[in-house]
Amino acid sequence: MPVATSSKGQYLHGPKTLQLEERPLSAPGPDEVQIAIRSTTLCGSDVHYYTYNRNGSIEVKEPLCGGHEAAGVIVALGQDVQKFSVLRPGDKVAIESGVPCENCTKCCKGMYNVCSKLRFRSSGASFPHFQGTLQEYVNHPARWCHKLPESLSYDDGALLEPLSVCIHAVKKARMEKGQTCLVFGAGAVGLLSAAVAKIEHGNRVVIVDIDPGRVDFAVREGFADVGFTTTLKRGGTLEENLGVAKEVAVEIGKLSWPQGSEVGRFDVVLECTGVETCVHTSIYAADSGGKVVLIGMGTATQFWPISEITGREIDIISVWRYAFCYPRAIEIMDAVARQGLAPDVRKLITHRFKGLDSIPEAYETAAKTRDTRSQLVIKSVVNL
């Protein structure tokens, strides 16, 4: 396959302002491979950048190509790649989009996900921005490309990125077999977190969301044993909001497992929304000595009931992306594809879009929970 010398992609120039651009592309560097992108699934952070031209406190400083959950086919190798890698032209690969320095203390300890020099595709955190995968081709370090088995499609490869986030979260929670687990948020990350808790530890799972369709999907497809649809209750003061959170935690605890026993409090709560009231409820819903794992990015500054945390020895665990999780993600996805391992995480892709011109519509759809035909939206993928 010939080496590409340019790449067309959709670049964000402001809130909901995309331009199709063709930019020059150099030959892959000595340790890089050139990849023709085939699938990119859209993430919540992509949608935030598209909608607001920022993600939380991170502002876009130059036109940004979105997309970081991606897979493609290798079309060319840098001159040194064959010396240290098994990758060859024609290989299907998933792209691990974060590229750390590999030399700092954090990298040497295996914590490359929090490397201060890490560059992450489609993120505005580093400048110049590390452009994303909603384009035809990218050059990427071979070290951070993962060869896919024949059983996996490009779409499967793209889903490995959010699946790795959830594997990392469950690892940090140090879950044990048979524990009970509450998941806040039935979007892609919440569903994948629930799936990992079940696959890795056989945990019983309750999932909570404000969208009844997503809750129904989670229970119907085996991501959770019990579902709970909550409402957006708001108090006028912090104390009133905490009171609402307590009430919701009690309501959840009064649910019953399929076997008939009361749910009660939880060994582990995986909070996948980042919404302050959901974090409050997570704390009240955790059992004494339990854990609350913060996965979702939401409200930047929050007030927590510290006395509840310290008085019942609840561990608050933060997670940021992932480290060394792709190999296990590939094993799980391969078992889903070849052995019918449940739940089937591939079902998270509900909407497919074809070609660069479809990307604006893909963004608009990914920002909703229902499409124009009232069909449930969980994950959108762009195929090139």
Rank of each mutant, 00 (worst) to 15 (best):
C107Y: 10
G78C: 04
F120L: 14
V99I: 14
S123H: 07
W144Y: 15
F120W: 08
K109Y: 07
K117P: 00
C108T: 14
V138I: 15
D80P: 00
A142Q: 03
S116W: 00
D91F: 07
Q82D: 07
H140I: 05
I95R: 01
L118V: 15
Y112N: 13
G90E: 02
V86F: 07
C107W: 13
F127R: 05
N139F: 05
Y137S: 10
A76C: 05
S116K: 08
F127E: 02
E136N: 09
G124S: 04
N113L: 01
Q135S: 11
K117S: 12
C115S: 09
C107V: 11
L77Q: 03
Q131E: 14
L118Y: 00
P128W: 03
S97T: 09
H140Y: 02
Y137N: 12
G124W: 01
T105R: 13
G90T: 05
F84R: 12
T105F: 11
C108V: 09
E96L: 01
I95C: 03
Q79P: 09
N113C: 01
C101E: 05
E102F: 10
V93E: 04
F130E: 12
V99D: 02
G78E: 02
L134R: 03
T133R: 06
S126E: 03
R143A: 14
D91A: 07
A125C: 01
Q82E: 15
V81A: 04
N103W: 02
F120M: 11
M111T: 00
Q131L: 13
A94D: 02
K92Y: 12
I95D: 01
F84P: 14
M111P: 00
K83G: 06
C115Y: 03
W144H: 13
P89T: 06
I95A: 04
V81H: 02
K106Y: 13
W144I: 06
W144M: 12
F130Q: 11
P89K: 04
G90Q: 07
C115I: 08
Q131G: 08
F130A: 09
L87H: 10
C108P: 00
N103Y: 04
D80Q: 13
K109C: 09
S122L: 12
P128T: 08
C104Y: 08
N103M: 09
V93K: 01
E96F: 05
S85H: 09
I95Y: 02
L134Q: 13
S85D: 11
S85A: 13
R119I: 04
C101L: 06
K83I: 05
V138N: 03
F120Y: 15
P128V: 10
N139V: 08
G110R: 09
G90W: 05
Y112I: 06
C107F: 11
Y137H: 15
Y137C: 11
V75H: 05
G98C: 08
K109H: 10
P89D: 02
A142H: 02
S123K: 00
K92P: 07
